[in-house]
Computed example of a mutant assay.
Amino acid sequence: MAPDRRNLILDSAITVIARTGVRGLRVEVVAAEAGVAVSLIYYYFGSRKGLVRATLDHANERAADAAPSGVRATLLAELDEAARETSAVWGEIQASAVFDPDLREQVREATDAWVALVAGAIAAEAPAVDAQAAAERLTALVDGLSNRWLAGSLDRERARALLDAAIDQELA
């Protein structure tokens, strides 16, 4: 039962961060969203900072579990409506890491894992390509396009078209 409650809290934290940002995250709001006592959040995560860190891990796990196979499908999935919440969480926590040195290592590790996943797919599909470099460029592009899409400065279909063209260029 405990893992279900923990995941419920983390799913609720994703929803709250996607709605209000990391700076707007309040433990009391997450507790209300999850329908649990505030004390249960502190029991599982120790602090607000612990909750934020665990939420990043949970968002990454959710994204990895939902990721389709193949370079193109994996990258384009990041610009799907279904990924909106996890993309918002990733962008928010990444931005917070600029000002919070405690988050930087975790963000770096998550970024490295994301790049490695994409590099592995590139190596399998296009062995003549420098998979690591291509993965770094493409994941950085996805991050930027996702931020613009979420901020409303770029239409989702335009973002997907730009990414699709970049994938073609990288894999050529």
Rank of each mutant, 00 (worst) to 15 (best):
Glu33Ser: 14
Trp114Ile: 01
Ala73Asp: 14
Asp100Pro: 01
Ala32Leu: 12
Ser87Trp: 01
Ala97His: 00
Ala113Lys: 13
Ala83His: 06
Leu117Ser: 13
Arg104Asn: 13
Ser96Val: 04
Val118Thr: 11
Ala82Met: 00
Asp80Cys: 01
Leu76Lys: 04
Lys49Cys: 11
Thr55Arg: 02
Ala67Trp: 01
Ala54Cys: 04
Ala97Ser: 13
Gly35Pro: 12
Leu79Arg: 02
Gly91Val: 00
Arg53His: 06
Ala95His: 11
Val27Thr: 12
Val29Lys: 09
Ala66Gly: 06
Val52Asp: 04
Pro68Thr: 08
Leu56Thr: 03
Asp102Trp: 02
Leu79Glu: 02
Val29Arg: 10
Ala110Ser: 15
Asp80Thr: 11
Leu40Trp: 09
Pro68Gly: 14
Ser96Pro: 03
Gly91Phe: 05
Arg48Asp: 14
Arg53Pro: 04
Ser39Lys: 14
His58Cys: 07
Val107Gly: 12
Phe99Gly: 00
Leu40His: 12
Leu103Pro: 03
Val89Ser: 09
Gly46Gln: 15
Glu81Met: 00
Ile41Pro: 07
Val30Cys: 11
Glu81Val: 00
Ala31Thr: 07
Leu56Asn: 02
Glu81Tyr: 04
Ile41His: 09
Gly35Ala: 11
Ser87Tyr: 05
Val38Tyr: 05
Tyr42Lys: 08
Glu92Phe: 02
Ala31Pro: 10
Asn60Ile: 00
Thr86Pro: 04
Asp102Ser: 15
Val71Phe: 14
Val98Gly: 03
Ile41Arg: 05
Glu33Asp: 15
Leu75Gln: 04
Leu40Gln: 13
Leu75Cys: 05
Ala59Ser: 14
Arg26Tyr: 08
Ser39Glu: 15
Asn60Phe: 03
Arg108His: 11
Ala82Gln: 09
Ala110Tyr: 05
Gly50Lys: 11
Glu81Ala: 09
Leu75Tyr: 02
Glu85Phe: 07
Tyr44Asn: 15
Tyr44Glu: 08
Arg26Ile: 05
Tyr43Gln: 10
Ala54Tyr: 06
Val89Glu: 07
Pro101Ser: 13
Ala59Glu: 01
Leu51Asp: 04
Ala37Gly: 14
Asp65Thr: 07
Glu28Gly: 14
Gly70Tyr: 03
Arg62Thr: 02
Ala64Pro: 03
Asp57His: 10
Glu78Cys: 13
Ala63Lys: 05
Ala34Trp: 01
Arg104Pro: 04
Tyr44Phe: 13
Glu92Leu: 06
Ala67Glu: 06
Gln94Leu: 12
